[in-house]
Amino acid sequence: MLEKIQETAAFLSERMHTNPETAIILGTGLGSLVHEITEKYEINYKDIPNFPVSTVEGHSGKLIFGKLGNKDIMAMQGRFHFYEGYSMKEVTFPVRVMRELGIKTLFVSNASGGTNPTFDVGDLMIITDHINFFPEHPLRGKNIEYGPRFPDMSHAYSKELIQKAMEIAKEKNIKVQHGVYLGTQGPTFETPSEYKMFHTLGADAVGMSTVPEVIVANHCGIKVFGISVITDLGVIGKIVEVSHEEVQKAADAAQPKMTEIMRELINRA
């Protein structure tokens, strides 16, 4: 696997004329950030050796390089999900490639269902920790020597970046929640009983991504900041039937606030 990672990194290095240390996974709620990247150049996933291709409606598939403010960045427009049929090694392959390319900080976003009764649809939740509910672990198998066999996860999300994000939100008068994100395989949305169980376990929000990438980023020594947009509620008495389209609509409405926080945070990080 290491050979494939290095082959992909070498392919990209030959085509890169910037030196980013910051990467962004443009998940749900962050799509509009792409319009703020300047001096950009793009490489389609289908043209990158060993890269999977996103199959989800609404998810593009390309790496974007350029500047966000004064920072060189690389951005994934379209992530890979376990529910699409990929293995965890495929889901997290781009993060390992990022490590080979010299990325030091990773910013991730997602859509999630809120299990905390104080949350509302459209809220932004800064992720302070996560619960891994995926049936396959992304570090299973032979250890790649990017990190230890048994990596510490006590600070999976950078406390420094969380603090900066809270300060930015206060400056901009943007309401933010903070809490624990639980990652599950999907692709079904949760039943009322599952939402109740996840909240009992300590989750404030539930989604189908992020956790694998964050685990691998930590193994690679990459700092992480994560944020969720609450697109539906898994709270007893507030649960309604939900569709992918409705999730996308709620995320789109929250995009300006999330984009503002992320833009500022990336430039101050």
Score class of each variant (00 low, 15 high):
P20I: 08
N110L: 02
S60R: 11
T118D: 15
S13R: 14
D72R: 01
Q6T: 08
N267L: 07
G85P: 02
E3S: 08
L201R: 12
I168W: 00
F198D: 07
G114Y: 13
T105N: 08
V216C: 01
A156Y: 13
M258Q: 14
T28Y: 06
A250F: 03
S243W: 02
H59E: 05
S112E: 00
Y83L: 13
I144F: 13
T191N: 03
I73R: 01
K46A: 15
I25F: 01
V235I: 02
D120S: 14
P192L: 10
N218C: 15
P94M: 04
T55G: 06
D47Y: 04
F82V: 13
G102W: 14
K62H: 12
Y83N: 15
L12I: 14
I64L: 15
E167W: 04
S112H: 05
A203G: 15
K67W: 03
Y157H: 13
K40G: 11
V224C: 10
P52D: 02
K67C: 02
H130W: 08
E194V: 11
G58H: 12
L12E: 01
H81A: 12
G234C: 01
D152S: 14
A23S: 08
I43V: 14
H59Q: 00
R149A: 08
A254S: 10
L33V: 13
A75R: 04
F225V: 11
I5A: 03
P52L: 04
K142C: 03
R149V: 09
L2K: 03
P187E: 09
I227N: 07
I43W: 06
V180E: 04
Y157K: 10
T38R: 14
G58W: 09
G179S: 12
M153H: 14
D123W: 01
G85H: 06
M98Y: 14
S112D: 05
R96I: 04
T8R: 01
T200M: 15
H199T: 08
N143D: 02
R268Q: 13
F225E: 06
H199L: 04
V176F: 06
C220V: 06
I103F: 10
V240P: 00
H244C: 00
E241C: 00
E36V: 07
S158D: 12
L106E: 08
V247P: 05
E260A: 10
I127V: 15
L201Y: 14
L201S: 10
D129I: 07
K170G: 13
S13H: 09
I127G: 11
T200D: 13
I73T: 07
N143V: 06
L26E: 04
L101A: 10
G183R: 11
V180N: 09
T128H: 12
F225H: 13
Q255L: 00
R149T: 09
M153F: 15
S193Q: 07
R149N: 10
N70T: 12
T210S: 11
E167F: 01
E3Q: 05
H178L: 11
I43C: 07
L182V: 15
A169L: 06
G85E: 06
K249W: 03
A9R: 03
V56I: 14
L201G: 10
H59N: 08
G226P: 00
